[in-house]
Write a protein that binds this DNA or RNA. Structure first.
Lengths: 220, 220, 220, 220
DNA sequence: GATGAATGAGCCTTCATTCAT
DNA sequence: CATGAATGAAGGCTCATTCAT
C-alpha cells in the first residue's frame, strides 16, 4: 500500500494515534456540516489539539477528507468478511455477506452519505484510490456470487451488474434512510431485498440446498 | 407555488430568461466543480453576464443552488408522465413509468448526482422543498403500483418500500454510471431491473394480461 | 451664486421641482440612516422616481448630500430674519433673533444633526460652501450684537466669540435634545439661556431700555 | 464591565496591545476620512499588521468603531477627575472640573467630533453603551454642582440643564474649533465661559469663599 | 425626459496554511 | 512535538453609475 498521506512525524504509533483523533473529529463534523463548511480549527478543537498540529500529520485539509473516507471504506473491508465465519454453504455465505454489508452501512449511514457527497471534493488521485477501494469491497460480493455460480446454485448472470444491484441495496438504505425508516426496519429491508434477489437468481439445485429462514415474502 | 426565490426585477419574462441563463451555467459548474468550489463570478461569466446582475434575480448563492435543484426535480415531474401517453394496461403503465424515470435520469446523470451531493448545502427550508418534490416524483410511481394492485396484477406489497426500490433502480444508474456503463447499457440495465421486479411482483392474472417484450432474462 | 450643482435638464422649473423631490426624500433618509447607509435607489424610490433619473439633476450622490445641507442652511437664512419684523429695540431684536435661531433648529433638529454628522462626507469645495453659509447665518447674530453695542446696551465683548456661544446655545438643543427634552422645554431652555447672556452682557443703560419678559431666573 | 467586544485570543495582555494598535490606527483614520470611507485594510496597515488579524480581536468593523469611541469616553472618565487633586473648595473643584473637561476635549478635538459624527453608525446596543458613558461623564460635573449647592455657594438651579450647558461649553470647542481658534485661545475660551456661569450662579457666600484668579472679564 | 436593467469596482470577512516560540 | 498568533488570498455581495430603450 502506498503511503498516500505523508507525515512530518516519525513515530508511527503517534502518527496513528493523532490521525485517528483528527479523523474521528473530522468525520463527525464533515457528516454534520459538510466538508467545506467545516474548518480546520473546528477539527483540531474537536480533537482537543492545537490548530497547527494537524499539519504535522497531514499536508492539507483535503488529506483529512481522504483519511476519513479511506477509514470508512477500510472498515467495510474489515467488517464484512467477519460474517463468513459462521456461514456454511455458498448461498448462506452470499446471504451473510449481503446482510453484513447492509448492516455495516446501516450502522453508520452518515459515513456512506459522506462518501457519496464529498468524494468529488478530492483530487483525481485520491478519487481513484477511493474508487479502487470500493471495487475491493465489491469483490467481497463478487466472490460470493461466483461461489454460487460455481456450485450451480445461481442461474447465469451478469456478475458485475448483480454486484452493483446489491451494492445499491446496501447503499440505498443510507441514501434514503431518512424516509425508509418510517415504514420498514433495516432487517426487514434486508430480508425483503435478499428475497427478491434469491427468487430471481436461485436454481432448483440452489433451493434444495438452501435453508431458508422463516420469514419469506414472495415465495413461488 | 411559493415564490421561494424573490427578484428585484419585475418583468416575469426577463426574470425567467435570466434565471435560466444563470441556472444553466451554474448547473454545469456545480456538477463539474461542486457548489462550494464554484464562484459567483464563474457563474455569471458562464452566463455571459456581469457579476452583480445575478443579485437582481436571486438573493444569494444558495438561491442559485436551490433553483438548479428545483429545476432538475421539476423536469422529472414534467417528463416522466409523458411516458404514459402510449401505455395501455396497468402493468404497461408501470413499466413505462419505470423506464421513463430511468431514462430521464440516464439522460442527465450529473443532475441527479448534484442533488445527492449538494442538497445538504441548502438551508433546512429549501431542503424541505426539495424533499417534498422528491415525494411528488415518487407519487408517479406509487400511483402505477396502486393501479396494478387494484387490478390484482401485483401481489400485496409494501408500496412505499417498493417505490423506493424503483427510485433506487433509477438513481442507481446515476450514482454508479461511471462503472455500470462499462458492462451494460442503460436500456439493458432498465429491462433487467424491471424483470427482477415483475417476476417478484406479478400475479398469474398479471402475467396473462401483460404483453411481455421479447427480451427477458429470468423467465419463469 | 455659483451654479454649484449642475444639471442635464434645461427647464429650470423642472430642475427645481425634481431636486426638491430628491432632496426631501434624501433628507429624511440621511437623517434616519446616515448618508452612507442610504442608497441612491432608496432616495429615488422615496421620491417616487426612477433610479437613473436623479443623474439628470445631480452628478453624484455627494451632490445630493450637498443639496440637502444647502437646503437646511438656506432655510435658516430665510427664516431667522423674519423674527425681526415685530421687534423694536436693539436688545429686543437680539433676543428675537436668538429665539428664532433656537426655534428654527428646535423645529427640525435632525437637519442640524445631519449637518454636524455628514458635512465631512463632502469634498473640500462643498465643505467650504457650507461653512460660508454658516458664517452668513452667524452674521444674523453678529449684526444684532453690534446694534446693541452701538447703542451702549451691551458691554464690550469679543463679538465672534459671543456669536459662537449663541450658535452653540441653538445647536446645543439639537445635539442634546435626546436628553434635554427630558427635563426642560425648548422655550424654557431658550429663556434661561438668554437670561444667562443678558445678565452678563447688559449695561445699566441696556436694562433701562429693555422690557424684560415676565419669567426671569437669575435676577440680580 | 461587560466584555462587549469578544476576542479569539486568550492572552489578555496581547489582546490589550493589539486592540490598542488597531484602535489607534482606526481612530486617526476615522477622524480623517470618516468611518465608512475607512477600510479594514487601511486600519490593519496603519497598525502594521495583516488584514485578517483584526478579526481575532474584534468581530466586525463596527466593533472597531465602538472600541475607538469607548476609548475616548473612557479617557475622559479617567482624566477629568485628576483635576480635583489640587482643588480645595467646592467652587474651586467645580472650576477645576470644567477646565479639565474643556482641556481634555481641547487636547483631542477630533475624538469628540468623531463621537458626534459616527455614534449613529453603531447598532442600538452600542449606542446605548456610549450614551451611558456620556452620562457617567456628566456625573463628574453634576457632583461638583451639588457640592456648591450644598455649601450654599450656588443659587438653586436646574442641575441637569446646567450640566448640559457646561458639557456644551466643552464640546463646543471641539465642534467649532476650526473657527474659534482664529480669535480666542482655548484657555481664554474656558475662562470667559466659566466667568459667565459663575456670575450667574454664585451667591454672595460663594463669592466670599472663592479665590478668583487674576484674569476676569465680566466683573460685577 | 424617464426608466430600470446592466455593469464592475471595491469591501468586509473567512479560513487554510505557516512559523516563531 | 505542540501551540496558536499571524498571514493574505479569495469570495460573496453591494451599490454608485451608465446607457439602451
Amino acid at each position: 500500500m502506498q503511503p498516500s498521506v505523508v507525515s512530518n512525524v516519525d513515530d508511527p504509533a503517534l502518527v496513528e494515534m493523532r490521525r485517528s483523533q483528527f479523523v474521528k473529529a473530522a468525520g463527525e463534523l464533515f457528516a454534520r456540516k459538510g466538508y467545506h463548511k467545516t474548518t480546520i480549527r473546528e477539527i483540531t478543537q474537536g480533537a482537543g489539539l492545537s490548530t497547527g498540529l494537524i499539519y504535522s500529520y497531514v499536508r492539507s485539509k483535503e488529506d483529512v477528507l481522504f483519511l476519513v473516507l479511506e477509514n470508512v471504506l477500510t472498515s467495510y473491508l474489515h467488517e464484512i468478511p467477519l460474517a463468513l465465519e459462521n456461514a456454511d454453504g455458498p448461498v448462506e455465505r452470499f446471504c451473510a455477506t449481503v446482510r453484513a454489508y447492509c448492516r455495516v452501512i446501516g450502522d453508520k449511514p452518515h459515513a456512506t452519505l459522506l462518501a457519496y457527497r464529498e468524494t468529488k471534493s478530492l483530487n483525481p488521485e485520491y478519487q481513484a484510490v477511493i474508487k479502487r477501494m470500493e471495487l475491493e469491497t465489491n469483490r467481497l460480493i463478487i466472490d460470493r456470487i461466483e461461489e454460487c455460480l460455481a456450485a450451480g446454485y445461481f442461474r447465469p448472470v451478469n456478475i458485475e451488474l448483480l454486484t452493483y444491484r446489491i451494492v445499491l441495496l446496501a447503499h440505498g438504505w443510507a441514501l434514503k434512510a431518512w424516509r425508509l425508516q418510517q415504514f420498514v426496519t433495516l432487517e426487514d429491508y434486508i430480508e425483503e431485498g435478499l428475497d427478491l434477489f434469491l427468487n430471481a437468481l436461485m436454481t432448483p439445485a440452489g433451493w434444495s440446498h438452501y435453508q431458508q429462514p422463516e420469514r419469506r415474502t414472495g415465495t413461488k
